[in-house]
Design a protein around this nucleic acid. Structure first.
Lengths: 222, 222
DNA sequence: TCGTATGTGAACGACTTGTTCATATCCTAA
DNA sequence: TTAGGATATGAACAAGTCGTTCACATACGA
C-alpha cells in the first residue's frame, strides 16, 4: 500500500478529492499494519491529516471505511485478464488472487474484515454489494464467455464453479486461524473448464464443524 | 439458555461456584440476545449480580468469557450418541448440530464468535483448544470405531470426512451473511460411510471468493 | 470579485475500559 | 465453636474512545 499524502498544517478547506485519497490511503495502511479494529475515525484523521468531522460525514462507520480502503487496494490486483482463452485467464486471475492473499499480506485484513462483518451490518452490506457480488458477477461473465466459445459446458452451474474455484482461498480468509489439515490450493481442480468430466474428484478444502479457528496462523499468533 | 441466578444485594463474598455459574449464564444470555460485542465485563457483572473485579480475575477477556458461555450451552446439545451403528449415530448428531444452529438460534452467536476470533487471539485460542479441536477429535473417534467395525473403509481420510460432513454447516456460520446460492444441507452426502464410492458427487456448499458476507440473513439484517 | 459550500481543529459530553482499595463474607483448621 | 486467611464485593477513580457542535479558513463557481 502506498505512502500517505503529505498533510498540511492548519485550518482551511482542502479539495475533497485530495482529502478522500488521503483518508483511504491512511485507512488502508492502518488496516494492513494494525488490523481492522485500529481503523477508527480519530486515528485515520490523524494519519491522513484530515478532519474527523469530515470523515464522519463521508463514511457511515469505521468498518465501511476500512472495507472501501481494502477495495481500493485490491481492485488493480484482482483484474480479470482477457486473452481469448478463458481457462488460462481464470487460472492467471486465481493465481493472482491467491498470491494477493498469501504472499502480499491481504489474508489477515480480509479475514478481519469478514470477521468484523459478522457483527457490523454496515460493513457486511458494503462488503457484499461493493466487493463480493460484483466480483462474483465478473467471474460469471468470464465463464459465460467460455460457454459461448464452447470452452465450457452450456449447462454448467456457474455459481458452483465460482464457489469451487475461489472458495478454498476465501475459506482460508473467513476461517484463517485453522489447524493445517486438508486445506491446500494444490488440490484444487480446474476440471469443470474442460467440459468433459462430471465428477469432482478433488474436493476443495473447506471449513469444518467447530474448528474454524486456531492459533497456528503466523501473522495472528498471540 | 436458562434464567439467571438470583443476585443478592450488598457486599460480602459468595461461593465461587455460584458466582461462576451466574456469570456464565448471564454471559450466555447476553451473547444470544445482544451479540458478542455486548458481552462486556461491566454488563455481565450487572446481569449476573457479581463483581466486575472478580470477572477480570477469572477470565482473560470478554471474548474468552463469551466463548466459554457458548461452550457451556452447546456441550449438552452436541453430544455424540453411541448405539453401535456409527453411521446412524453421526447422522443423528449432525442433525442435532444443524438444528442447534438453524432452529435453536446458535448460528448468529457462533458466527459472531468466529468473526470476533479473527481479531482476538485469546478468543481464537480458546475456540480452537476448548471447542474446535476437542469436537473434531470426538468425531474422529467415532469414525475410527466405524473403521474397526468395518462400517468405513480403513484407508478413509478422517479429517476430510469430518470437513465434508460438518463443514457446510460451519461454513454457514463463518460466512453466515451470504446470498443464498448453492448452500443447502440437502445436498450433503453420507456416501463415505458406505465405504463403496470413491467419488464425491455432491460437493458440499462452501464459501467463495469475495462473497462471504451479505445482508440476506434475517437475524443480522440492519 | 463575491457569495456559498465545505473541510478544518478545538472543545465538549457521554460512555467504556481497567484498576485500586477497604469491606463483608466464606471456608478451613484447630 | 472460634479464629484467621482467602476472596468476592461495590464504590471510586483515571484514562481513553466515540460522536457531535461550532466558529473559522479556504475552495470553487457564477
Amino acid at each position: 500500500m502506498p505512502q500517505t499524502a503529505a498533510a498540511r498544517p492548519g485550518r482551511g478547506r482542502r479539495p475533497a478529492s485530495e482529502v478522500r485519497a488521503a483518508v483511504l490511503t491512511a485507512a488502508g495502511r492502518i488496516l494492513l499494519r494494525d488490523g481492522v479494529q485500529a481503523v477508527t475515525f480519530d486515528r485515520v484523521a490523524a494519519e491522513a491529516g484530515s478532519s474527523k468531522t469530515t470523515i464522519y460525514k463521508w463514511w457511515p462507520s469505521p468498518g465501511a471505511l476500512a472495507a472501501e480502503a481494502y477495495f481500493t487496494q485490491s481492485r488493480r490486483v484482482l483484474d480479470f485478464p482477457d486473452t481469448g482463452d478463458v481457462r488460462a485467464d481464470l487460472i492467471v486471475q486465481l493465481g493472482a488472487f491467491v498470491r494477493w492473499l498469501k504472499e502480499e499480506g491481504a489474508e489477515k485484513p480480509v479475514s478481519e474484515l469478514v470477521g468484523a462483518a459478522q457483527m457490523d451490518p454496515i460493513l457486511a452490506g458494503a462488503w457484499s454489494e461493493n466487493y463480493a457480488l460484483p466480483r462474483r458477477e465478473l467471474a460469471r461473465e468470464r465463464l459465460r464467455v467460455a460457454q459461448l466459445r464452447g470452452q465450457l459446458r452450456a449447462d454448467a452451474d456457474l455459481d458452483v464453479i465460482v464457489d469451487q474455484l475461489w472458495g478454498p482461498a476465501t475459506t482460508g480468509c473467513s476461517c484463517s486461524r485453522c489447524p493445517s489439515t486438508s486445506r491446500s490450493s494444490s488440490r484444487w481442480s480446474t476440471r469443470p473448464c474442460t467440459g468433459r468430466h462430471h465428477e469432482q474428484r478433488d474436493p476443495p478444502a473447506q471449513a469444518w464443524e467447530g474448528a474454524p479457528v486456531a492459533t497456528t496462523s503466523e501473522p495472528s499468533e498471540a
